[in-house]
Computed example of a mutant assay.
Amino acid sequence: MEYESENRLIFKDADDFEELRAMNQNLTFSAMEESFQKRNIPFSEENFTSLGLRNPEDKQFTNLAWLLSDQCQHTLKIAVFDGEDKSIFKDRKEFSGSIFRQLEEGYTYLQLVNRTAGRFSGLERIDLTDYPEEALREALLNAVIHRDYSFSGSIIINANDACMEFISLGGLLAGLSKEDICNGISLPRNKKLAELCLRLKLIESYGTGIGKIYRAYTDCNQKPEFIITPNTFKVILPNRNSESKESKKDKKTKNSISYLPFPREMNPGLLMEQQSSYKALSLQKKTVLSYLEEHKSMSEKELQELLQIRKTRAYLLSREMQEEGLIVIEGRGEKKVFHLKS
């Protein structure tokens, strides 16, 4: 931790963190190279100076290079809680290394946390994720791209049954107000990082993220909140499937919502009464078993169509049924099929 403390003293009064010489000059960039290759963008250390990763005068690595390197010491922490408070953990993850890797792995994990609830309107089943995927993506990008990296603390994401909070270090830059950013005004703290994310098409243009988050909740009663202090920026996304505080739904409507569960590894040490939430899945399991009894086998696509669920949820459901000894999974990818266990 000496390294972080020394960094904090050096960077505290820096005008531009990105351009300062990195304390660690033994850097590798495997995760960054993967991100470039994934988007068919040429990756070459010859471009490091123009990208802001090397100082043009002495060719030393900059702090921007350190952030993008595999040796980056900043982390992203995600905690999932039971209920609407923060007293009982369901799961917690910490992502480290290059901030490109943290973005990729963090977003993948948030997609697993983002449950889908099913409601029936007449004969039609309507599936709705707890959080709009675009809002999750933009809130995560905002936290990573615009945080103040001169602080050594982690980006914190807390998820419970009511909302998801994204907390990053660093308030607004001098001269900006909350109203300014809500109106699309952008003054990036980490300009070169933002430019690089724009080049990789992680963002479309400056100043559009907050607007996208708001628009993702256009048809919802509850709206996102932005809480800003001198040293923190918090985005709160309400759970679209939770009961509205202003206008509570009747119990009949609330009980008609059926959730798919979190994967097993996200529920270490749950009490027996907490496990009762899995009973909502029994009807889906019976539907799958009945189908297999009649048709003998089923593809993953057929499972999605039968239950009207997404690919990720189909994967979690089939894996749980396999672990319980109900089905056998053969093959991978498009050739994956499910059979009853004999």
Rank of each mutant, 00 (worst) to 15 (best):
D180Y: 05
T218C: 04
E179H: 08
K279F: 10
L281R: 05
G269Q: 01
I203W: 03
L283N: 11
L289W: 08
T253G: 04
N221E: 15
S297T: 15
Y214M: 13
K279N: 10
N239T: 04
Y217H: 03
R264F: 07
R215T: 11
E204V: 02
D250L: 10
L270F: 00
S205P: 03
P261S: 08
Y259T: 00
M272H: 11
P230N: 03
L270P: 06
K249E: 15
N183I: 04
S277A: 12
K254S: 13
Q222G: 01
E246G: 15
T287A: 15
I210A: 03
A280L: 11
E195A: 09
N183E: 14
Q284V: 03
P238Y: 00
S244M: 02
S258D: 07
K296V: 08
K296F: 11
C197R: 02
T287E: 12
G269R: 05
K223F: 00
D180P: 10
L260V: 01
G211V: 00
Y217V: 06
L200I: 02
L193P: 06
P238A: 02
Q222W: 00
L271T: 15
L289E: 12
I213Q: 04
A194K: 09
S276I: 13
K245D: 10
K245T: 12
E225L: 13
K201E: 10
S297R: 09
F233N: 00
C182E: 15
E195M: 09
K254D: 12
G184P: 09
Q275N: 13
N183W: 04
T232M: 08
Y206P: 10
K279D: 08
P261T: 06
I228P: 06
F262M: 05
D219Q: 12
D250R: 09
Y217A: 02
K192C: 01
L289Q: 08
D250K: 11
S186K: 10
K245G: 13
E293M: 11
S277W: 10
L283A: 14
D180C: 08
I228W: 07
M272R: 14
N239Q: 03
L292F: 08
P224I: 01
I213V: 11
S297H: 05
S277D: 08
L271I: 11
Q222L: 02
Y217W: 03
S256K: 09
K248V: 10
K192A: 06
Y291F: 15
K286D: 14
T287V: 12
E195Y: 11
S277T: 05
S290T: 11
G209K: 04
E293W: 01
E293P: 08
I181R: 07
E204C: 00
T218S: 13
Y278L: 14
R189H: 06
M266K: 07
S290R: 12
N239G: 04
S244P: 01
K212E: 04
K223G: 02
P268D: 02
K212V: 02
K223W: 00
L200T: 02
K223L: 01
K296H: 14
N239Y: 01
V235R: 06
D250S: 13
Y206H: 15
R264C: 05
P268S: 08
C220G: 02
N183M: 09
N255A: 12
S297G: 01
